[in-house]
């Protein structure tokens, strides 16, 4: 009888302690939403910034932009390329 009472008391005690722990943990977790929200906003901002920078990069590296800038700087189209090496003959006598 005494053992049963002890056992029941122990179980109730454990339940009580676990409930307290649950309340404490849930309480802590509930406020991480603020941090999480902030982090999510930051991620969104950086993603947007990345996309915008990538857009700018694409426009600056487009051939139309490069050709236009080159023309403004005074570059002209090459009329004839300079060939430094002659082509190999079709057949070589060893």
């Amino acid at each position: 009888m005494k053992k049963a009472v002890t056992f029941i008391t122990l179980v109730i005690g454990i339940i009580f302690v676990l409930s307290i722990i649950q309340i404490v943990v849930s309480n802590k977790l509930s406020t991480t939403g603020i941090v999480l929200g902030g982090l999510q906003d930051q991620i969104k901002t950086y993603k947007t910034e990345n996309t915008l920078l990538a857009q700018q990069l694409l426009v600056l590296s487009s051939y139309n932009t490069i050709a236009s800038s080159a023309a403004d700087l005074g570059f002209i189209t090459s009329k004839s390329p300079i060939v430094l090496s002659a082509p190999l003959p079709l057949a070589i006598r060893p």
Partner: peptide
């Protein structure tokens, strides 16, 4: 999912 004041929860 948001809490009572509209903040996102875990």
């Amino acid at each position: 999912i948001d809490d009572a004041v509209g903040r996102p929860i875990l």
